[in-house]
């Protein structure tokens, strides 16, 4: 009943593992790629046998939506990333500088306000950013980008930094952790020394469990996986 043993400790970066991988066999890799490809094709296929859309122009033209949503990986690349538990570094549209904001005395919860109340910390909309940046640092090239989004009536397409692949089936709730006095930096590192957020900690199951064990809280599987 013990937790599966993770491949490596939580701190090291994904790159550290790479040299090992080249030792491995190519043919089997091809097999995996093939299997994933088939799985993906399978998922994309609609399974409603008598779907009439092919001979009915109405359904084609009237529908405003198309496509299928499925937990299948959208690409082979993501499937492999999931497989190896690696998380690609997101490319942010604006190089948001955490350290500057924190140095000005802002609290994490000023922007990530959901953290005390719900599962997700959340990111505020551009309206929140522009409340200050109408007047502050308007000549900064990054702020100009921000203002450009606002002028177009768009929100900033921020990319998630911390997430779990769907196949991990993790349902993480921030609020109980904050209530228990776990500091943000325990999982997210010291953001006052970071500019653009990157995934500093591996957040593997081992990482979660070590803390849960140390604090004597539940390590039952269904605490997180359901």
């Amino acid at each position: 009943m013990d937790a599966p043993k993770p491949r490596q400790s939580s701190g090291s970066s994904p790159a550290a593992r790479r040299p090992l991988r080249f030792l491995l066999l190519l043919p089997l890799a091809c097999g995996v790629l093939g299997a994933l490809w088939i799985a993906r094709a399978e998922a994309g296929r609609g399974h409603f046998s008598s779907a009439p859309s092919a001979n009915s122009p109405v359904t084609r033209q009237v529908n405003s939506s198309s496509g299928v949503f499925s937990p299948a990986h959208p690409s082979v690349g993501e499937a492999l990333d999931d497989f190896f538990d690696t998380y690609p570094t997101p490319v942010q549209p604006i190089a948001f500088n955490h350290s500057i904001h924190l140095a000005k005395g802002m609290k994490c919860t000023a922007c990530h306000s959901g953290v005390t109340r719900g599962p997700d910390a959340g990111i505020p909309s551009i309206t929140f950013c522009m409340a200050c940046h109408q007047v502050i640092a308007t000549t900064n090239p990054q702020i100009k980008k921000l203002a450009a989004y606002a002028a177009k009536g768009q929100d900033v397409p921020w990319q998630r930094v911390y997430w779990f692949y769907p196949s991990a089936h993790v349902r993480f709730w921030h609020a109980p952790h904050i209530r228990a006095g776990v500091d943000c930096s325990v999982c997210h590192g010291d953001m006052s020394r970071e500019t653009v957020a990157v995934r500093q900690k591996g957040l593997t199951m081992q990482f979660c469990l070590s803390c849960h064990r140390a604090k004597g809280v539940s390590v039952d599987c269904t605490t997180c996986h359901y």
């Binding site: 399978e42 609609g46 399974h47 939506s65 198309s66 299928v68 949503f69 937990p71 599962p119 349902r171």
Partner: peptide
């Protein structure tokens, strides 16, 4: 038996508190 699928935008009904099981 296979990955579940939802014709968009039916996926908006999904409950974020519950896992989506894969094939």
């Amino acid at each position: 038996w296979f990955n579940p699928s939802w014709d968009k935008p039916l996926q908006l009904q999904l409950n974020p508190d519950v896992s989506i099981r894969e094939s």
